[in-house]
Each structure stands twice: as structure tokens, then as C-alpha cells.
Amino acid sequence: MTTFLACGLILAGVGFYLAGTVGLLRFPDVYSRLHALTKADNTGLGLLALGVALLAGSPRLALLIALVWLVAIIAASVACHLIAGYALQVGECGDEDDR
């Protein structure tokens, strides 16, 4: 039963990764791509981590996996905030990226 649940969660996580990647490729501008990215970061990795934690077989490893997810969403939200702010700033004063 646990195994079935874990497999389902992992596959659902991969589904969100798929959505995030398709969004990254297909959306028209930086801000919508950011939006797609957060789906993979939060939900995709979250579901996958939950499934993997069920299979890990020890509470210590499950907690470690939970920590990975926690750090990932903190890092991702800060990174996305910074990149969005950067895109806004650079958009105002011309593209200087490929210096």
C-alpha cells in the first residue's frame, strides 16, 4: 500500500516537473517563465520528496529529505524574487546581460 502511494506521488511529482519544463520553454516572457518554474520547485519536488521519503524506510532519512525540500522552497522563492527584480531593473535600462 505504502509502495503504491509512494510510486503515485513520485509520478505525480514528475508530472509537475513536466509542466514546469514545458512552461519554461513555451511561455512568452521572463515573468511567466518564473511562474512555471515555481510549480516544479515547490509541488514537483515536494511530491517527489514525499514519495521518496516513504520509500526511504527510516525516519532520519525522511526528515533529511524534508529538510532538502524546505531549503529548496526557501532558496527558490528568494532566487525567483531576485531574478524577477533583476529582470525588471535591466528591462528599464537596456539589456546588459551579454556583456
Binding site: 531549503v71 526557501i74 532558496a75 528568494v78 524574487h81 531576485l82 527584480g85 533583476y86 531593473q89
Partner: peptide, 19 residues
């Protein structure tokens, strides 16, 4: 320097440094 308008990096440092 960082984009000036955000306080998030400082918070990030406080959260992540001990970790």
C-alpha cells in the same frame, strides 16, 4: 551590490548561515 529594494537576501543569510 544587490538590487537595493529587497530585504530578502539578509533574511536568507540569517536562515541559511547556521544550516
Amino acid at each position: 551590490e544587490l538590487p537595493a529594494r529587497t530585504m530578502l537576501p539578509a533574511t536568507l543569510a540569517q536562515l541559511f548561515l547556521p544550516l
